[in-house]
C-alpha cells in the first residue's frame, strides 16, 4: 500500500467527517471529491462504505442541526450571515426561500445537490418553525442520498481514481501542495465571483433615499414587491404604490409598462 493511500485509509472516515462538516457549516471546501475518493477506496476494500456514509451523514446532521437551531433562534438574520461566509453569490436568500416554500421540508431531500441551497435550507427550516424531529428525518434522508451518490460514484469509477491517487503518490509531498493549491484556487475563484457580483449589485442598485426622492418628485418608477407570501404574511405592509407580485406572475403586471420605464424591485 502506498503512503498516501495508507494515510487516506487510516484517517479516511475522520477526513470525510471533517470535510463534510466544514462544507455544511458554510466553508467553501467541497466535500464531494472526498466522498468520491472514499467510495473508490471502499470499492477496493480499503475502507468501509458504511463507515464513510455514517461519518458523512453524522457530519451533515450535526452541522445542519446547528444552523437549524440558529435559524429558529435568530430567524432571517442567520441567512444573511450564511450568505456572507459561503461565498456563493448564487444563493440569494429569496430564491432559496421560494424553493423552500414550494417544497417545504421535502426540499431537504435534494438540497445538498444544489450549491448554496444546501447551507441555507436548514436555518430556513428553523426560521419557519418546523419541528426538530421532522427536520432531522428529512435532513438525514437527504444526507444519505447525497453522500450515497458520492460514494456510489467513487465505487463506479474506482479504477480511474486509483490511477489518480497513484499519480499523486508519485508527486510525494508535492501532492499535498497540489491539493492545497486546488482548494485555494476554488476559494479564490468563489471570492472573485462574489466581489464581482457585489460590485455589479452596488452599481445597479437604487438606495431607499433615491427611491423616496423619486416618488416625492413625481417621477415614481414602477415598484414591484417580490417578497415571498410567507414573508408578506409576517409583515403585511408595502412601499406605497408598490405592485405585489410573485416572480412567476410579473408578466401579468407589467404588460402595459413601456420598456423605457424604470422598474424597482424589492424583497426583504
Amino acid at each position: 500500500m502506498t503512503t498516501l493511500v495508507h494515510y487516506l485509509v487510516q484517517y479516511g472516515v475522520a477526513l470525510v467527517f471533517l470535510n463534510v462538516f466544514l462544507e455544511q457549516i458554510g466553508a467553501p471546501v467541497p466535500a464531494l471529491p472526498t466522498l468520491i475518493v472514499a467510495g473508490a477506496l471502499a470499492r477496493d476494500g480499503k475502507l468501509s462504505s458504511t463507515h464513510v456514509l455514517v461519518g458523512a451523514v453524522a457530519a451533515c446532521l450535526i452541522a445542519d442541526w446547528l444552523w437549524f437551531v440558529l435559524g429558529r433562534r435568530y430567524g432571517y438574520r442567520v441567512l444573511r450571515t450564511i450568505c456572507r461566509i459561503s461565498l456563493s453569490p448564487d444563493s440569494c436568500v429569496r430564491d432559496t426561500e421560494a424553493n423552500f416554500e414550494r417544497w417545504g421540508l421535502k426540499s431537504l431531500l435534494f438540497a445538498k445537490f444544489i450549491p448554496g441551497f444546501s447551507t441555507v435550507a436548514p436555518p430556513l427550516a428553523g426560521a419557519t418553525r418546523h419541528r426538530t424531529l421532522q427536520f432531522l428525518l428529512y435532513d438525514g434522508l437527504g444526507a444519505i442520498l447525497w453522500a450515497g451518490a458520492g460514494v456510489a460514484a467513487g465505487r463506479a469509477f474506482h479504477r480511474a481514481i486509483d490511477r489518480l491517487l497513484l499519480a499523486l503518490e508519485r508527486l510525494g509531498w508535492w501532492a499535498v501542495v497540489f491539493v492545497i493549491l486546488i482548494l485555494a484556487l476554488i476559494v479564490l475563484f468563489k471570492w472573485w465571483q462574489r466581489i464581482g457580483f457585489y460590485r455589479q449589485l452596488r452599481m445597479a442598485r437604487i438606495t431607499v433615499d433615491e427611491l423616496r426622492a423619486m416618488i416625492d418628485g413625481g417621477q415614481a418608477p414602477v415598484v414591484l414587491d417580490v417578497r415571498t407570501p410567507s414573508v408578506r404574511k409576517r409583515d403585511p405592509r408595502r412601499i406605497p404604490t408598490a405592485i405585489v407580485t410573485e416572480s412567476a406572475e410579473i408578466d401579468l403586471h407589467i404588460g402595459d409598462v413601456p420598456p423605457h420605464k424604470e422598474i424597482v424591485l424589492y424583497c426583504t
Binding site: 449589485l201 445597479a204 442598485r205 437604487i206 438606495t207 431607499v208 433615499d209 427611491l211 423616496r212 418608477p221 414587491d225 417578497r227 408578506r232 409583515d235 403585511p236 405592509r237 408595502r238 412601499i239 406605497p240 405585489v244 416572480s247 410579473i250 408578466d251 407589467i254 409598462v257 420598456p259 423605457h260 420605464k261 424604470e262 422598474i263 424597482v264 424591485l265 424589492y266 424583497c267 426583504t268
Partner: peptide, 30 residues
C-alpha cells in the same frame, strides 16, 4: 428576466423592504 423582456432600467432596492422601514419612510397595508 425583466431585462430579457426589453426593460432597460431595472434596479433592485438596496436594503430591501427592511431598509425602507428602517429609514422611517411610510408604508401602506398590502
Amino acid at each position: 428576466m425583466l431585462m430579457e423582456k426589453g426593460f432597460t432600467v431595472v434596479r433592485p432596492l438596496a436594503g430591501g423592504f427592511d431598509g425602507w422601514v428602517e429609514a422611517g419612510y411610510p408604508t401602506e397595508p398590502v
